[in-house]
Amino acid sequence: MELLCLEMDTIIRARPDPNLLCDDRVLQRLLTIEERFLPQYSYFKGVQKDIQPFMRRMVATWMLEVCEEQKCEEEVFPLAMNYLDRFLAVVPTKKCNLQLLGAVCMFLASKLKETRPLTAEKLCIYTDNSIRPQELLEWELVVLGKLKWNLAAVTPNDFIEHIVKRLPLPEDKLALIRKHV
C-alpha cells in the first residue's frame, strides 16, 4: 500500500454530482432563491446620483481582470457583481468609492467560494494602492451590513451545469461549450 503522503499544493474539487444536476427540484429551488438575490431596480435612475452606467462597466472590467489574473474560481466574479449591484441598489455611493466597493465585493465573494481566498493586501495592490487595507476592512463590514449578511446568492453560473445537462450536446464538445458560456 502507498503510505507516502501525496498531498500536493493543488485544490481538490468535487466532481459534478449527477444526483444534484438531474433533479428538477434543485433547479426549481435555484430559480426560487435567485429571485431573492436580484437587485431591486435600476439604481442609476434613483439611488445613484454620481455613478453612471459606464462607470459600472469600467469597475466590472477591472474586477474581471483581477479575477482572471488571480485564477479565481469562475463563480467569484459573478457573485462579486451581484454584491456590487445589490449594494448600489440601496446605498448612494460616490464614484471615488466605486473601485473600493468592487474590491470589497471580490474580497467577500472570494472568501465564500475559494479554498485560498484573495487577501486584502493583494486586492489593494491591484488598485495601484489607491485604497488601503484598513479601508477595505471597514467597508467589508458596511457591505455585509447592507447585504444583511446574505452572501449565498444564486448567480447565472449556478445554472450552467443544469442547462448543459439538459441539452443534447455531444460529449466531446462539452468542455468547449462550458468554456464559452
Binding site: 474580497f107 467577500l108 472568501k111 465564500l112 481566498p117 487577501t119 486584502a120 493586501e121 487595507p133 477595505l136 476592512l137 467589508e140 463590514l141 455585509l144 449578511w149 452572501l151 449565498a152
Partner: peptide, 13 residues
C-alpha cells in the same frame, strides 16, 4: 489583516 474570517461567513450562510 484579512477582516471577517471566511469560516464565519460560511457558518452564517
Amino acid at each position: 489583516e484579512d477582516g471577517i474570517p471566511n469560516q464565519a461567513l460560511r457558518e452564517i450562510k
